[in-house]
Amino acid sequence: MTAGDRTGDGVPSDHGPPGRVRLRTESTPRSATPPSINGGGPEPTRAVVFDIRDMAVYYGQNCALADTSLKVYRNLVTAVIGPSGCGKSTFIRSLNRMNDAILGFRLEGRVLYHGHDLYGSGANRVEVRRRIGMVFQKPNPFPKSIYDNVAWAPRNLGMKHRLDERVEQALRQAALWEEVKDRLRDSALGLSGGQQQRLCIARAIAIEPDVLLLDEPASALDPVATASIEDLMHDLKHRFTIVIVTHNMQQAARVADRTAFFSLDITGPARFGTLIEYGDTETIFRGASDSRTRDYVAGRFG
């Protein structure tokens, strides 16, 4: 396969309309594996976490995103880049059903998560979000103490055993422990923006999800805070599968193993976001096959 393949890795995009949930196991035979990111050599088959097929998202009559198929692999950082309005946020929010509450939201195509249809009749929305955590663009700590921010979700889930230890671990993994260990009972709203965002990451990983979705997590932060969050991602990917939306190309180049470039489809009368190119980060940035990708990463638009 070619690294810059339109649909990610050669999976034909000729699936019919979404029908019944078809269970797929992780060992679905694959004709091609994603190319190595570690400097050549065949990559061992990685498990597929998300298998997105012909995804299209509508808000009422408006099509926000269409014609998008890609696979997200376990324990990699997958970046989603593109100009504003190209459906990046819509895309990532559709991966843990955060869009469900939006009036008129409709998703076509299929999103398979470990082979299970995320939008199938058997899929429980709360269960989905318990497995697929999300950190948002704007830091949104709860108006509670630092400790309670992290401990809240584990308590709900019944993970009350050694809760203090769990909170400490989560804060350590979010590289926040040293800064807050003496004021765990203070309000989280007193933290700086960067600390708040790391608290939100700690909050998300405290319940040990399978996937972390990061929707422009550093866009509201200063460069120092941004750097600390990027460092964090290198550590976290060993334990989680990470999908990150960013409008910052350098950030994608620094943190991501694989990169998906989204843009507006302006060929037809209706404008909607769509996946243009998906592949190994190096390929996207150094040798993209689509001219739009090359223009974008070269800073010629967006």
Partner: peptide
């Protein structure tokens, strides 16, 4: 109550009632 807070809680696998009890009512 800001939508971001409710979304943040929902993204942690909380049920509607847990969001109400944990986020909406206290604030």
């Amino acid at each position: 109550v800001p939508e971001e807070l409710k979304d943040g809680a929902a993204a942690l696998g909380a049920t509607r009632w847990e969001i109400i009890r944990g986020i909406v009512l206290p604030s």
